[in-house]
Nucleic acid binder design. Sequence first.
DNA 1: TATTGTTATACTCTATAACTATA
DNA 2: TATAGTTATAGAGTATAACAATA
Lengths: 183, 183
Amino acid sequence: MPSAHPVTAPPAPKRTRKPATRAQNPSSRAKAVAAPSDTTAVDHVDTSYLQTLMGYNARRAALSIIELFLERLAPYGLKPVDFSVMSTICHNPGVTSRQLCATLNLLPPNLVGLIQSLEARGLIERKPHPHDGRAVGLHPTPQGQALMVQAEQTAADLELEKTARLTPAQRKTLLDLLQKIYL
Amino acid sequence: MPSAHPVTAPPAPKRTRKPATRAQNPSSRAKAVAAPSDTTAVDHVDTSYLQTLMGYNARRAALSIIELFLERLAPYGLKPVDFSVMSTICHNPGVTSRQLCATLNLLPPNLVGLIQSLEARGLIERKPHPHDGRAVGLHPTPQGQALMVQAEQTAADLELEKTARLTPAQRKTLLDLLQKIYL
DNA sequence: TATTGTTATACTCTATAACTATA
DNA sequence: TATAGTTATAGAGTATAACAATA
């Protein structure tokens, strides 16, 4: 957002003069600077301001993808965070809980039950850490790896569906720009 | 993601032959195709696969912005959803709860308490709907409008900070591409 | 009969404090 | 003393079912 807010009310009109003439015909100027207290029905909701906010758009886009993700990955018993954790373990065998938390921005207490669940399902194994007696290395089981091969393919398909209106180049651009925000 | 997963473990190596020579020096090939069951410590967590997923990147970027949003907008007593609701009401005086839910993808029961809270704070007013006796028009009070002028400016500043590594053109591109996903 | 707004409630996600075992 | 992992728990966010009033 290089400039200001086009649809935003001006910063304190200060009402020095001209108290009349206004607030009488609310439908004449439509959306921008609509009279604050009329009782006119809103036919179409204007969201042009929110659409200038990166946070709003990123959140809406993420939730849109996650919605389909939950549906398509349900057969694997994986929700977004489960998927991220399993995928990271598969691509980094021996990774520790602490590393997972730092990498995926999770809190340790919230990861415990998740790890226990994955282990109980036979998808991962906990092995002693080679250098640090406090830490535990997390490793995928063959079943876990096999599951993730399928799950990652399903995720890829789903994402292509959700980004169907983007060209491959646009898709790459979008990934790069998003990473410039959070990385 | 046009092609496949570059960093994904191959689907069952099948270990037909060559059981020796390998799995002995795990650090030689580093990340890709790491031996599944060694006990080597992971020095740097590889997230290159997750970074190819739009859902992952959009979620991480959104959460990164929201984190700062929560901090900067706390003085106004506004969280992201409160902000979206207040902003939509300010830009669409007379909008109904039903319209807000449809526009912002909220569930009616979750909006009730939010509206009551905003009304109790004197930021919005509920007025009878001109055409529909069931509905209620939501209008910003002068205090509500004044608050949102400040809040929207704070949000704009925060967003510029979070997107500091993007050019204005890149920022516009990012907004457009995100909207192609969820709109 | 369908829709708006509402209540009650359950479920999930996220966050904080405190403890243990090891470094 | 600091860190990895864990426990317990609180809080926020999100979900469904059911109801009254109006269309």
